[in-house]
Nucleic acid binder design. Structure first.
Lengths: 195, 195
DNA sequence: TCTCAGTTGGAACTGAGTGTCATAGTAGAC
DNA sequence: GTCTACTATGACACTCAGTTCCAACTGAGA
């Protein structure tokens, strides 16, 4: 059967992916993202450069593919909010699963990931690109949520973008303070700054 | 004198820079940013690849260095706002010089620039990086403006980031509509979505 | 056993960006 | 006008990311 075959392959594939990424992440943290070449990563993982690159597509993706589920999680959470809720409040709540995922144990893992991204311009830029890719779906969810359509698409776009920036600003402060203040509270604070 | 010497050189340098960028911009618009190589650009300009790259540092910068004055303009405008004004209103007004520069005649020029950036992921990403570089200075200006300090640095950061995103969202809609609705009104609309 | 899709490694290639070096040009001091 | 720094330039070699192609291998189903 086609489905079974592709799915078993897919399972193996994502397991290998996970394993390769784990090793690479250690190297990046130890030596710095820019110092480690694809050849280094492939050699350490015991595969060829071709194979390594086939699993991720780009060097940045080795680190950033872990953020992929966050986009879907946010869209789903936004869809689940009650229709009457204000956009801004709904967007705040849509970040809950994102926060949960980033702060789940071991806490140092999420922190290390964000620290690596934060101190590597190339990773920052790519992460922002990734987030930009989530936006259309978030705007779409926001549009469907309120049939009343009081807001133009530009306004919805502005709210979604601002919400993402609140998250990013909160993350930056959270990392800078070594995770001390709760990320939840920081995101609340950032959201409060715009209402 | 050191000052005079460097300044005459600098004038010549920036004139050449302008000229090289003008030619390159045409090529990018005609053939697409990714299709044109640095060799193409250098050959068309009649200089070596080394020289061309020395003027800009990177291929993206050939297009994006024109945005550099916007950051300074925004910071200056923010500094000039009355101390009592609300942060959000002050940030909106700080965008006026940016809007003026992007919409000044010939209008098609700013539009073409934004269109090229908008349809080229690499340029989008770099522009966002550039804007991220403006943020600390904007937060600083905002901090100095209101001695009262009711807001945390996270809140100021969130407001600045949100304001930048309002500008970006407005620009995107403006370009999509071929510059028809006034950019001023679009930025107002985006800002209104967050208050 | 045969077949076939998917995986792998290897090699060659393009293109961006860095670094170095010798040379040519030029602004300013004398 | 000449000399002297400083600067700009072109040429070249180099590293590294990413793409493309190909040949060999693997593993599951017919």
């Amino acid at each position: 059967m086609d489905v079974a075959r592709t799915s078993t392959r897919a399972i193996g594939r994502s397991a290998v992916r996970e394993e390769l990424a784990r090793g690479a992440f250690g190297q990046f943290c130890r030596e710095g993202f820019d110092k480690v070449t694809l050849d280094d990563l492939a050699a350490a993982a015991g595969v060829s450069r071709s194979t390594f690159l086939r699993y991720f597509g780009s060097k940045e993706e080795v680190v950033l593919f872990t953020f992929d589920p966050l986009g879907d999680g946010m869209v789903d959470a936004l869809r689940a909010r009650p229709a009457g809720e204000e956009d801004w409040a709904a967007l705040r709540r849509a970040l809950d699963p994102v926060i949960a995922r980033l702060t789940r144990e071991p806490a140092s893992e999420g922190l290390a990931l964000l620290r690596l991204v934060g101190q590597t311009p190339a990773l920052c830029a790519r992460l922002r690109e990734k987030q930009a890719g989530w936006r259309p779906r978030l705007v779409q969810s926001l549009t469907e949520r309120s049939e009343a359509q009081r807001s133009s698409s530009l306004m919805l776009h502005a709210r979604v973008a601002a919400a993402m920036e609140c998250l990013m600003a909160a993350l930056e402060h959270w990392v800078a303070d070594e995770g001390r203040p709760g990320l939840d509270d920081l995101v609340d604070e950032a959201f409060d700054a715009l209402s």
